[in-house]
C-alpha cells in the first residue's frame, strides 16, 4: 500500500502547513465563531430558533471558507515551485491532486466543529445527539463542491488573483445564500434567487436535520448540479495548467 502511504504523508504535511497559517486560523476558524456569537447575541438574545439556524449557517460559512482556502494553498504552491518540485519525486500527479483534495476535506473540519461547539456550549443550542452528528457529517460532505471551486481557482489563477477570487466567491455566496442573515430579511426576488445558490442548499442540509427531517430532494438536486459544475471547473483548470506547473 505504498500509494496510500505517500498520499497520507502528503496529507499530513499539507494539513500541518494549513494549520500553521495564522490567516487561516484567524480568518477561517476564529472569525466564523466570532460572527456567530455576535449575530446571535446582539438582540434580546433568547430566540433559540435563530441561534440554531445561524449556527448551521455560520458553520456552513466557515466550512466553505476553509474549503476555498485549499485552492489558495494550491496557487501558493504553484508560485513557489513546490508543485514543480513534487513532479520530480516519485509522486504521481494523481496522488498530488488526491492529497490536496483530502487536505481540503480535513481542513474544513476545524471551522465546522468550532461553530457547532460555540452553539452547543456558549449559546445553549440543544439537539439530539444524532442530529449533531448528522449536521456535522452533512455539512462536511456538502463542502466538497466548494473545495472543488477553490481548487479550480487555485489551478487557474495566480496566487494573488486566487485570493481575490476566493474572497469574492466567499462573500457573494455567503450573503446571497443566506448564511449570514436570515432569508426573511431579503426582498422576494433575491429570496427566489437564493434558492438556487450552492450555499443556501448547503446550509439547508443542516437546517433540515435540525428541524428533524431529511434534506429535500430539491436541495440534493441543486447541490449535485453545483458539484458537477465546480468539479468540471476544477478538472479543466487543472488540465490547463498541470503541464506548466
Amino acid at each position: 500500500m505504498a500509494v496510500t502511504g505517500v498520499v497520507w504523508e502528503y496529507l499530513r504535511l499539507e494539513v500541518r502547513r494549513t494549520l500553521r497559517d495564522t490567516g487561516f486560523v484567524i480568518g477561517g476558524v476564529a472569525m466564523p465563531v466570532a460572527m456567530y456569537l455576535l449575530f446571535t447575541n446582539l438582540g434580546d438574545g433568547d430566540d433559540s430558533g435563530w441561534k440554531t439556524a445561524s449556527m448551521v449557517g455560520m458553520a456552513a460559512y466557515g466550512a466553505m471558507n476553509s474549503a476555498l482556502n485549499t485552492g489558495a494553498g494550491v496557487a501558493e504552491d504553484r508560485s513557489t515551485g513546490w508543485l514543480r518540485q513534487l513532479r520530480i519525486t516519485p509522486m504521481t500527479p494523481r496522488q498530488v491532486v488526491i492529497g490536496r483534495a483530502l487536505t481540503g476535506a480535513v481542513t474544513v473540519l476545524p471551522a465546522l466543529v468550532a461553530v457547532l461547539a460555540a452553539g452547543g456550549l456558549v449559546n445553549g443550542v440543544r439537539l439530539d445527539l444524532w442530529k449533531w452528528a448528522a449536521i456535522a457529517l452533512l455539512l462536511w460532505l456538502g463542502s466538497i463542491p466548494f473545495t472543488l471551486l477553490g481548487l479550480g481557482n487555485g489551478y487557474r489563477l495566480t496566487a494573488q488573483t486566487t485570493g481575490v477570487a476566493n474572497m469574492a466567491c466567499n462573500l457573494v455566496l455567503a450573503v446571497v445564500g443566506g448564511l449570514w442573515f436570515p432569508l426573511a430579511l431579503f426582498p422576494e426576488w433575491l429570496r427566489s434567487l437564493s434558492a438556487y445558490t450552492p450555499t443556501n442548499r448547503f446550509a439547508q442540509l443542516g437546517t433540515a436535520v435540525a428541524d428533524g427531517h431529511a434534506p429535500t430532494l430539491g436541495t440534493v438536486l441543486v447541490l449535485s448540479l453545483w458539484l458537477l459544475a465546480f468539479g468540471s471547473y476544477a478538472v479543466t483548470s487543472y488540465r490547463r495548467t498541470a503541464r506548466t506547473v
Binding site: R20, E76, G81, W82, Q85, I88
Partner: peptide, 9 residues
C-alpha cells in the same frame, strides 16, 4: 530547480 522559493510553514 531554478527560481524555487522556500515552501512556507
Amino acid at each position: 530547480l531554478q527560481d524555487g522559493r522556500p515552501v512556507p510553514r
